[in-house]
């Protein structure tokens, strides 16, 4: 009998990613509903201190795999390691965040295990027959598919910001299982030479709770400074429309939309963005949308929770001042 809902605890430099906290929180609820144990799986080197963090977040058990080959993420080594612990422990479900690593790792792992994968899910329901049914946005959020399987384990990646993080309980006791794995040399054919992380104090776009985005209405790269000032007052990330990216004002990695990032923040502030269908595809699941646009007919107002019809060069600095007052109050 396969057992347990397993969560891949993604860590980088000993820091657990936000999406893993989200998954552990939701996993706890699913575990209670289904009577299955919740298991956190940590891969890395020198990461034992994370066990208590994962325990506090709701895990009944932690599988800890430490190896120098697992210090940093690599497709091959991580697939090799997870394949071994999953075949041994036989979970019902193996869930991970739909991060860059999750998107890269999950399909390879699922293929090696010969199982199904529901990717980029925005909902999980308990199902008597299939155990879990996953809700997936398809056609860039224009429809949803509900998918499941009786093949075990089912693997899924979950879109960041889908689930709330519950408050940790430091008193939770947890069983720890240390596993050793052998990484197949065939899995080390792609060698990571270098990792370059941008040194930004702003949150990562896809994880951010608030995003301020600019479009063609920003008129030039230098004007993004006013969005950055606003963003920094409220701890937001700064995104862009494709028009702004294609004009060379912002880097591709900041593009939101069908051919950019899919984001799902609590608040998305669109400045000088018309609201083309391909842009909405990337941010339409935001909880609240604010639009600032001088054209009262702009499509973005059809989806915006709140809007201001006006010149963004006037409105944005005023908003920044108002947010400052609110934050310091």
């Amino acid at each position: 009998m396969p057992k347990g809902i397993w969560i891949f605890v993604e860590q980088r430099d000993g820091q657990i990613r936000k999406s893993s906290f989200e998954l552990l929180s939701e996993g706890r609820k699913l575990a209670d509903q289904t009577g299955e144990p919740l298991v956190g799986v940590i891969l890395g080197e020198g990461v034992e201190s994370l066990v208590k963090v994962v325990a506090a977040q709701g895990a009944d058990k932690v599988i800890l795999v430490e190896d120098e080959k697992l210090k940093n993420y690599s497709t091959g080594a991580y697939t090799s390691a997870l394949n071994q612990v999953i075949r041994k422990g036989e979970p019902q479900a193996f869930l991970m965040g739909n991060s860059a690593a999750g998107r890269d790792l999950a399909p390879r792992l699922a293929q090696r295990l010969g199982v199904g994968l529901a990717s980029d899910c925005t909902g999980i329901e308990h199902d008597p027959e299939k155990f879990l049914v996953f809700k997936r946005p398809i056609y860039a959020g224009k429809a949803f598919a509900y998918t499941g399987t009786t093949v075990r384990p089912v693997v899924a990646t979950i879109r960041p910001n889908t689930f709330a993080i519950s408050s940790p309980d430091e008193s939770r006791q947890v069983e720890v299982e240390r596993e050793t794995v052998t990484v197949d040399p065939a899995d080390l054919k792609a060698i990571v030479k270098e990792m370059a992380l941008a040194t930004s104090k702003r949150p990562e776009l896809v994880e951010a709770d608030i995003i301020v985005s600019g479009g063609r209405g920003m008129k030039g790269p230098e004007n993004f400074a006013i969005l950055e000032q606003l963003a920094d007052v409220i701890g937001a990330a700064v995104g862009a429309s494709r028009a702004a990216v294609d004009s060379g004002w912002r880097e591709q990695k900041f593009q939101v939309g069908q051919t950019g990032k899919t984001v799902s923040p609590t608040l998305y502030i669109a400045c000088g963005i018309s609201g083309a269908i391909q842009h909405l595809a990337g941010m339409g699941s935001s909880k609240f949308i604010v639009a600032i646009n001088k054209d009262p007919e702009a499509n973005i107002f059809n989806v915006a929770s709140y809007g201001i019809v006006g010149d963004l060069f006037e409105v944005v600095p005023l908003l920044t001042e108002e947010f400052k007052k609110l934050v310091s109050a």
């Binding site: 049914v133 949803f144 989806v303």
Partner: peptide
């Protein structure tokens, strides 16, 4: 391996306040 049991459409967003 995976079977889709159902499709549906998102509830359209309502225009809010200007």
């Amino acid at each position: 391996k995976m079977k889709i049991s159902k499709y549906d459409l998102p509830t359209p967003r309502q225009a809010g306040k200007k």
